[in-house]
Design a protein around this nucleic acid. Structure first.
Lengths: 343, 343
DNA sequence: CAATTTTACGCAAACGATTGAAATAATACT
DNA sequence: AGTATTATTTCAATCGTTTGCGTAAAATTG
């Protein structure tokens, strides 16, 4: 039945010997159309499981009811949460979501943006790849009049809405938490310092040290560029060999923190009694390591949902109407677990 | 420049005082078009950053270059891997990917499938929700001639390609691994037994017991319907209270295994010396618990990539050509870590 | 130079649906 | 009956692009 061909309005029109326009109006319950015709049409539509062709509608209305999402990696607890938040909101609004991952490559980011633009997505939600240094591909988006919203990793060169984490605050909170637990010599495993995000966490760390009257020591800060467990492990070792070793570690990401945890245990020291450890992002696995890792929550789902809402605000605005840009900064929270329970 | 309006072939035609068809041909380097015209057209196209409207192309060619993916949950290590695999292959083929999550609800699965169908995706990759009992919505897919491929959670009522894990083999491997390590009394925390997948793992477990001459005891098998850490913890406790308690646990999923791990440690027993534990799926977190959890690898990325390849095989087949359906069963592997190192 | 072939382009239809305007049919009014 | 009114329906254009076919002008041929 109807094999290999989706039924169209024309098919119905032909079968009933009426014009396509009548069928179209009948399906939309237009007052001009007679009851009999409407019934005949809707019966046949049901029988053949007629589905309006969204492509044709898009072409005419210049709206695809689709939004594009460009994300560095899909396989990442935080980002998959963001995507999930976006998808849920989009689903409620009757929109579809096209997802592209850049694998942290600028070239792939450019091609993906281009492809989504060619597909005429109604709007684009983007989180920049680590590699991205130039923004021509995103200029084309805004120049073409397509709404753009950044999440998590943004560029400040654009006058568009965005949703980010308050990394400064998060770095501050993590450090403050350690200070309040009674740790005095707090080291920091920083993230790649070319990213604003890493710099902000670092700055929050420094401010908290100052506010709590603790020393800031340059040799207590080590950059972990990759953010892997292995790297955290390797880079923590030297810290433990210092004559004056730290009594706490604030890692800018959870894998590094877990690496630190291992390094500390391997060296015979105890967490949290000898050294406290706190991570950042609160990955699922944070609660499962031994001892359970304290961390800073990074509300991925909420970020996605918020970014989607900003997008729909722009999409629903009357054409030509100016929508004010919003830059939302989501609050982080300390998730306190065993790894920082000094007392 | 060109604000709020993507440049079309017509715009270029108007500006050059030639017809749209000439522009179209010029852009495609058609031999009928003069060199001068071609140059003028391509210069202007570059200047205005002309992008062919994929919607218009889709309407004409009845191809969207988009595939739809329906997945129970995006935020799930395994599924995000699958999606990632699909996206990578699709990217290579120049296809876009629309992703929908059902949150394990049949109703949402139906609506998502319908929406993707309305968007005229060229093909659909589906993993069923736990709730799904009827398949009318998927019948519409195949009836309409849209290629369908199942991954991980399939229905056998369809003559379509699929990619699944060899759960029987996995269950067998897990049990065999425990037996070879010298464990004799192996318990099983089964998954929800209404799922084929859980039943297969269970069956593999039974067969391995038999093959290695170990006793099968009904009271050593407990169903964990939710697959949470908490559930694994709670359901393991009674096992440890048995007069004749098991000396190993094979859990049908990693969270349950981790719950079991905790329960065993809490009861004062040691893993792996007193009781061995192995999970299933090899979540990222498996390697991070203490002791590191042995598990059965479930190649999510490969599954996605394989499913996408099957899809493209169908899409690339000449129209009308019959494509033979393939049911790929991916091999699992034992990932041996501390939790089963008895010796 | 007339006949023929090339060259280079335009016209129109098509994909599937919508919609303003025009046309036809049915009914009412004087 | 003739005209005005209303109820239905069709026509044609449109969205952006492609493509078979037709054709005027230029180039080639004998």
């Amino acid at each position: 039945m109807g094999n290999s061909h989706q039924v169209t309005i024309k098919d119905i029109a032909r079968e009933l010997n009426i014009s396509p326009s009548t069928v179209s109006r009948a399906l939309k319950d237009h007052p001009d159309i007679s009851k009999d015709t409407k019934k005949a049409v809707s019966d046949l539509a049901k029988k053949y499981n007629y589905q309006p062709n969204a492509i044709a509608l898009s072409l005419r209305s210049r709206k695809t009811n689709t939004i594009g999402v460009v994300v560095p990696q899909i396989v990442h607890f935080f980002f998959s949460n963001v995507i999930s938040g976006i998808e849920d909101i989009a689903y409620d609004k009757g929109y579809n979501v096209m997802v592209c991952q850049t694998n942290e490559l600028q070239e792939r980011e450019e091609k993906s943006v281009q492809a989504l633009l060619a597909s005429r997505v109604d709007g684009l939600l983007v989180s920049l790849s680590k590699e991205t240094k130039t923004y021509d591909h995103l200029r084309k988006v805004t120049d073409g009049g397509t709404p753009l919203v950044f999440f998590d990793r943004k560029s400040d060169d654009f006058d568009v809405s965005s949703v980010v984490i308050d990394d400064y605050e998060g770095g501050y909170q993590a450090t403050e938490h350690l200070a309040k637990q009674g740790y005095k010599k707090i080291a920091h495993l920083a993230g790649p310092l070319n990213l604003t995000l890493s710099k902000s966490r670092y700055a929050g760390y420094q401010q908290a040290l100052k506010d709590y009257g603790l020393d800031y020591r340059r040799d207590y800060v080590i950059e972990c560029a990759n953010g892997t467990i292995e790297e955290g492990y390797q880079k923590t070792k030297p810290l433990l060999d210092l004559r004056d070793k730290p009594d706490a570690v604030f890692a800018a990401n959870d894998p590094a923190a877990i690496g630190a945890l291992k390094a500390i245990k391997d060296s015979g020291l105890r967490v949290p009694q000898d050294i406290g450890v706190i991570g950042f992002s609160d990955w699922q696995l944070a609660s499962l390591v031994e001892p359970a890792l304290s961390s800073i929550s990074q509300p991925g789902y909420e970020m996605g949902a918020e970014a989607a809402r900003l997008m729909f605000k722009a999409l629903e605005a009357a054409k030509g109407e100016e929508v004010e840009k919003e830059n939302i900064v989501l609050k982080t929270n300390v998730i306190s677990r065993e790894s920082t329970q000094k007392k």
